[in-house]
């Protein structure tokens, strides 16, 4: 890439971006699956918030959330990877991915609280801002990864730079252990990125 002549580089970037966009379009979910997923999320939220399981309440809620999900199906489910049947996907996400993610993030959160308490008492800090690379491309995936990095011990996401198929995160690390990009990425991201890559594009 560095030896390409200057006048060819923009054209090459154009071609790369088009290839990326077309593979992304080919891997999207079909429309009716997006509508069904959005409807399930909105309807469960309605049921919990209204706290009322009479038949007419559920009927009104179901109709209203169906109309909303027919309009807004792109907002939540745009970046989900296509894989398998929709029923299999719903069961896999709601009974396997979300409990595993919540369980391990809860223990990470408690560990990070104790680590902050230890740093506050002994003041053995060595802060620095490092740059790591992620292999996620979609907005939803990067957002969830950045928020998870903020909640894991000792790290805080500062900014994201997204260019042409490569995404970098700037992370404020409270005790810098290594400056190598791959090792720092492994230490900071852990296995969160692997789980997110199964679902998000």
């Amino acid at each position: 890439m560095s030896r390409v002549p200057f006048y060819l580089r923009e054209r090459l970037d154009d071609v790369k971006q088009r290839v990326l966009f077309e593979t992304y379009e080919a891997q999207k979910l079909p429309k009716w699956e997006q509508v069904v997923l959005t409807w399930i999320v909105l309807f469960s939220f309605w049921t919990i918030i209204s706290a009322n399981v009479k038949v007419e309440n559920l009927l009104i809620g179901g109709l209203a959330t169906l109309v909303i999900s027919l309009f807004m199906y792109e907002m939540l489910t745009e970046d989900i990877r296509r894989s398998g049947h929709i029923l299999e996907k719903i069961l896999y996400i709601s009974f396997f991915v979300i409990p595993q993610y919540l369980f391990i993030m809860a223990f990470r959160l408690i560990e990070s609280n104790f680590k902050v308490a230890k740093h506050a008492v002994f003041m053995d800090i060595n802060p620095g801002i490092v740059k790591i690379k992620t292999e996620l491309h979609s907005n939803t995936g990067i957002t969830i990864l950045a928020n998870s990095i903020t909640l894991t011990p000792g790290t805080l996401t500062l900014d994201v730079s997204k260019k042409l198929g490569e995404t970098y995160l700037y992370v404020h690390w409270i005790s810098v252990e290594t400056l190598n990009r791959e090792k720092a990425g492994e230490k900071i991201k852990g296995d969160i990125e692997g789980w997110l890559k199964k679902i998000f594009w």
């Binding site: 990070s112 609280n113 902050v116 506050a120 800090i125 802060p127 805080l156 500062l158």
Partner: peptide, 17 residues
């Protein structure tokens, strides 16, 4: 803690947990 960013560490994680 000495500056803004390290204080944000304490604020975010301990408030959330």
């Amino acid at each position: 803690f000495p500056d803004v960013y390290t204080r944000l560490h304490a604020a975010t994680k301990c408030d959330t947990g």
